[in-house]
């Protein structure tokens, strides 16, 4: 390798990639079907979201019209305007539910992602004894159906006095095994061992290597995991572990509105749409970040 070679590397790469695709892999007809497939699948996927949004703007008579219509003719915000009225006679102010939901979701997501990444790093990039066995147990734990675990878990919660505390909503998420599995698999391919070895030779400790080298490299996966954690935590409705009304979360109260029968089906849809907004926001932030780092990572079309 001469210096000259290194200098011309990047432009050469682009040219060869483009010409290669044009020559061997793409035809206009092929392109057409390829885009058609993506658009068709995308439409199929997004339809329910569109349906929820459209329906939330339907007046009552259009909700019950026959034959059923997908789109709205005379859109109205009445369903949204009715919400404050439906929520005004709560025993506890709405802001408390909003706080509970945000607090539980954010705390558990951050804890979950941080502890999972930390554990995955040690399991993936150190030689500690027992790491392989432990990781295998983590993987197999994912395959055990959670349903029969609920009774032993309930006993453990009450043993530790967690019933009716915020912790009973937060801790189960931290115990979720998917994060460690995802992170470890990602690190296998993403973090070159030579880089860590060099840092070790330079005298960097385990934690310094983790924060300064590993975390920046796994950022795309970290953001994805934050999204997964947030989405799950945002939807939690504790079953039989929270009785204190002032600790309950937003989905619980939203379920009460949704259960209000056909006259409230418009408002129920409005509630569904409102509840979707935070996960969608987190999605937008995390994915636009990922896509950005993706284009700078050198995968060019």
């Amino acid at each position: 390798m001469t210096k000259n070679n290194v200098k011309t590397k990047t432009p050469k790469l682009k040219v060869s990639k483009e010409s290669q695709y044009k020559r061997y892999t793409r035809s206009k007809v092929g392109n057409f079907f390829y885009v058609l497939f993506l658009v068709a699948f995308g439409a199929f996927s997004v339809l329910p979201l569109v349906y929820c949004i459209v329906t939330s703007f339907k007046p009552l008579d259009e909700l019950l019209v026959f034959p059923p219509r997908f789109f709205v003719i005379r859109p109205t915000v009445a369903n949204y305007a009715a919400l404050p009225g439906l929520l005004s006679n709560l025993r506890i102010p709405l802001s408390r539910y909003v706080f509970n939901s945000l607090f539980v979701t954010i705390t558990s997501t951050l804890l979950y992602v941080f502890l999972a990444t930390l554990a995955a790093f040690a399991l993936c990039k150190s030689k500690i004894k027992g790491r392989k066995t432990f990781f295998l147990i983590v993987q197999f734990a994912l395959l055990f159906n959670a349903y029969t675990l609920s009774i032993p878990r309930y006993l453990i919660y009450s043993w530790f006095g967690l019933i009716d505390t915020y912790l009973v909503m937060i801790i189960p998420h931290v115990a979720s095994t998917m994060g460690v599995f995802l992170m470890k698999q990602y690190m296998e391919g993403a973090i070159p061992n030579a880089l860590l070895e060099a840092a070790r030779v330079d005298g960097a400790g385990a934690y310094r290597i983790f924060f300064q080298i590993a975390v920046p490299i796994v950022k795309p996966c970290l953001l994805t995991l934050i999204l997964f954690g947030f989405r799950e935590a945002w939807a939690i409705t504790p079953q039989g572990t929270i009785f204190n009304e002032s600790l309950k979360t937003l989905p619980t109260i939203m379920q009460q509105i949704t259960a209000g029968g056909i006259a409230r089906s418009g408002s129920a849809m409005a509630v569904t749409v409102i509840m979707m907004i935070p996960p969608i926001l987190v999605y937008m932030i995390s994915q636009s970040n990922i896509m950005e780092s993706m284009s700078s990572a050198g995968i060019k079309e």
Partner: peptide, 20 residues
């Protein structure tokens, strides 16, 4: 240090998943 990295997850995982 690596053991301390796994430890927090390990404790929660063993108590809330392995034991059940």
């Amino acid at each position: 240090p690596y053991y301390t990295m796994v430890l927090p997850f390990f404790i929660v995982f063993v108590i809330l998943t392995v034991l059940p």
